[in-house]
Design a protein around this nucleic acid. Structure first.
Ligand SMILES: [Mn+2]
Ligand SMILES: [Mn+2]
Ligand SMILES: [Mn+2]
Ligand SMILES: [Mn+2]
Lengths: 221, 221
DNA sequence: TTTTATTGTTAGGTAAATCTAAAAATAATT
DNA sequence: AATTATTTTTAGATTTACCTAACAATAAAA
């Protein structure tokens, strides 16, 4: 089992996330945008990852992860999310402060470390943004999420995740009081602009469609 | 304040440790041995570190850290030791299992992270091997240590550190029961081979000079 | 179905960190 | 002081992960 560099791991993780987001092969340019490199650099790396049997790559046709590539990627995602839990639960960082740091921590390779960290944190199932943490074998335990903007008037739910992790977005939610675990009820989804009017802790809050669509709720009824 | 790469940081740290160990300039070959590279590579790096004003370097005359270089090095030592405390105290790794991992963790750059970690750990003054942890400003709080082999018959002390960190050595001490915090009393320092006969928890233990000289005790009387 | 636009690849280069082999400086021994 | 040994540096390569500019393939539009 050859070793993977930080850079290779970042590529695998991005390819993994992009494959989740939409079906079919992942495109070179999309990877470049997400990693912050040029397409030419991506092509170089894709060849290397293909040589290592971490991805299936057909020139001009995009890529997908092999079994081995996917397991590697999920392992990194697991570490990223466990470290985020540590940073928020134990070190009391805010949910918008942890991503960058976890981006580094996720590359530290030690099965013993990850196992003990998981145990120490109480084997959490989700990270501070509500994302599911895969277990040691790379299995996710299904959770059913609905986007807030897809609820109908009258529906109630608890905020269990967000699908956008930028600091700007998270800080905005924080200010609105829309944090994980909060109960909300939809008053109206405005047809004109898609904005959502909701009740949060007995107060009315109005959020734009763009804000609403990245809030994931556990629909209650 | 330009950024330092992992590799540069490892060099700075090694130069720092070597300057502590013996006075005078640190030699190229010694650095190479300690980092595990060839002297030619060290020369390359020394030029770079000198350009960045992190070391004073005169061709053929060895190097020493500048103020800036020393502060950087101490910052890395601080992180290394804090993470070791975390790994042992919180994650329950053994003292011979943490060095490699801390070698990676020490490079993660976030003042907020280090501050919170320090706070979370209760601002420890020493790491799991008894080494002093510098404070945020790079200051060490002096502790007076004596090498076990320098004690005289009848002297008593508490084990507060070790000056050798190899897994083999630490495992050996563990087996003998010679771990941090243990009280010992010297029965005799054998003149013939320098081995030390001591009492540990009411039992007699004999250790070689080589083992004894890396055990640091807080002499009691 | 050409033409145009988009997407992806190749060719050739750079910077960081390493290496080997050869040369130069310094230190230690006759 | 001359010779030998050790230490250090230089010269020239290599590998990884990038880049720009030019070209090729595919997709979209006319
Ligand atoms: Mn990363
Ligand atoms: Mn997250
Ligand atoms: Mn290190
Ligand atoms: Mn230590």
């Amino acid at each position: 089992m050859s070793t993977t560099s930080y850079s290779e791991e970042n590529y695998l993780k991005v390819i993994y996330h992009l494959s989740q987001k939409s079906s079919g092969a992942v495109q070179t340019n999309t990877i470049a945008e997400n990693i912050g490199t040029k397409p030419a650099s991506v092509t170089d790396m894709l060849k290397k990852l293909a040589d290592k049997r971490l991805i299936d790559y057909v020139k001009y046709q995009g890529v997908s992860l092999t079994e081995k590539g996917q397991l590697t990627a999920i392992g990194i995602v697991r570490k990223h999310r466990l470290w985020e839990v540590f940073l928020v639960d134990k070190l009391k960082l805010k949910w918008d402060e942890v991503h960058e740091i976890a981006e580094e921590l996720e590359h530290i390779n030690s099965d013993l470390l990850v196992e003990r960290l998981d145990e120490y944190l109480g084997r959490p199932k989700t990270d501070p943004h509500g994302d599911s943490i895969p277990d040691k074998d790379g299995k996710f335990h299904a959770v059913n999420l609905t986007k807030l903007n897809e609820l109908s008037a009258g529906n109630t739910g608890m905020i269990v995740g967000v699908s956008e992790h930028s600091s700007a977005y998270l800080k905005h939610l924080e200010k609105l009081g829309l944090t994980l675990g909060k109960e909300i009820q939809v008053v109206e989804v405005v047809e004109f602009d898609g904005s959502v009017e909701l009740i949060l802790e007995d107060k009315k809050v109005n959020i734009s469609r763009d804000v609403a669509k990245h809030i994931l709720v556990n629909e209650e009824f």
